[in-house]
Design a protein around this nucleic acid. Structure first.
Lengths: 220, 220
DNA sequence: ACCTGAACACCGTTCAAGT
DNA sequence: ACCTGAACACCGTTCAAGT
């Protein structure tokens, strides 16, 4: 029971450390760079020892997704619903830009960690308190989240900097002959010329949805 | 040069057959059931012979996604934009229900097969012809597609039949104590009770977006 | 031209064994 | 209680060889 009697095992790993290192790996190299074996290597441990702290790779991914959701600014339940939805959406976008691997598992895994439950509860709560019915609140959340996910996903996959943009355009445009795809060709040309306006466009679409929700709510 | 001189090779495989069998496999067992080796087995061939017809698994997935997109009713360029966007969205939903594995790769791969280029060209063309600017048309398509993808994805992952619904709810509700997540708990309860109204909800959200686009278009 | 066998460099995970 | 070595059952893909 004295400190010196501490057993010889390394005692280095915890679930939190495993999840944190997995997120660091995914941040650095993307999801396809994350394997249990590489993760173990990064932690200086054999692959199998990970299974003492996470049940498997699926559960690890769920935990990573939940850790991402934990970072978003959830609505305050008594706050102005529109301001709160706006703040949450902007925060989600920012978090998804920070963890560029997260959009896909966030969309594609039906997971329910503590942070996700908390955020969903707060979001529905804010909308219901503002006067939406439960089904309406459920739909409103879906509409907003679909926008955020879809947009974030695009932003992650398209080149942001002007040079990258130009390069991608010149790599892409030849595949779109004006004779066969006149509208697509012109759209690509205009987009290739425009400067990047990520947040503006994001907020534009977001406000479109919020307008729709407001009208919908008042209409009934 | 006579028919009898036909060489002994089986000559069974073509790219189209490989893609078609891959889709059948994915339809039946999901994307995680689709491996190059299993696909080869289903075609009665060694894994390596597939590489004579597709460059690799990534390209195979791209081809599968394009084959899915080829099935959707693209807009007619001179048609009423709202009716055409509506028809396209309903068709996309239907196709994504038929190929339940397709939502995720359709969202997450930045691919540009012939069918995708064609559909994008037709969609932008219809909107631009109706009076949207190119950037507006681009955004409009994104908004609609995000809705379709997000919704289809949900519909694929949630149980449709009442029994499955009930089972999922009773498996889920205990994880959501009313004390900690009062709003989420009540939402889950109401949703668990409601009968499934997939298409209605889909069209509701779609019309919300189309209303927003119409207002937006008229406003400038 | 198309298909194959053998091999390479990976995976996630189990299980019995160590301390 | 935690970590390990060895093994199992898979992957995608390359390459030289067959016909």
């Amino acid at each position: 029971m004295s400190p010196a009697s501490k057993p010889p095992q390394r005692r280095t790993l915890t679930t939190d450390k495993v999840v944190a290192e997995a997120m660091r790996l995914a941040d650095a190299e993307g999801l396809e760079g994350l394997s249990m074996r590489r993760l173990a290597g990064a932690l200086g441990v054999t692959p199998m020892s990970l299974y003492n702290h996470v049940a498997g790779k699926e559960e690890l991914l769920d935990a990573m997704v939940d850790a991402v959701v934990a970072q978003i600014d959830s609505p305050e339940i008594d706050g102005d619903w529109r301001a709160m939805m706006r703040r949450r959406a902007l925060s989600m976008r920012e978090v998804l830009m920070r963890h560029r691997w997260a959009s896909i598992p966030l969309i594609s895994r039906m997971t329910s960690g503590a942070a996700i439950l908390r955020d969903t509860n707060a979001t529905l709560g804010c909308l219901v308190t503002a006067g939406f019915t439960y089904p309406q609140a459920d739909w409103a959340r879906n509409a907003i989240d679909n926008h955020v996910y879809g947009y974030a996903f695009q932003e992650v996959n398209y080149p942001v900097d002007p040079e990258g943009y130009k390069a991608a355009a010149s790599r892409f445009l030849p595949r779109i002959p004006a004779s066969e795809y006149p509208f697509l060709h012109e759209a690509a040309r205009q987009i290739a010329e425009a400067r990047y306006d990520g947040i503006t466009r994001f907020e534009f679409g977001l406000d479109l949805i919020l307008d729709g929700l407001e009208a919908w709510k008042d209409a009934e």
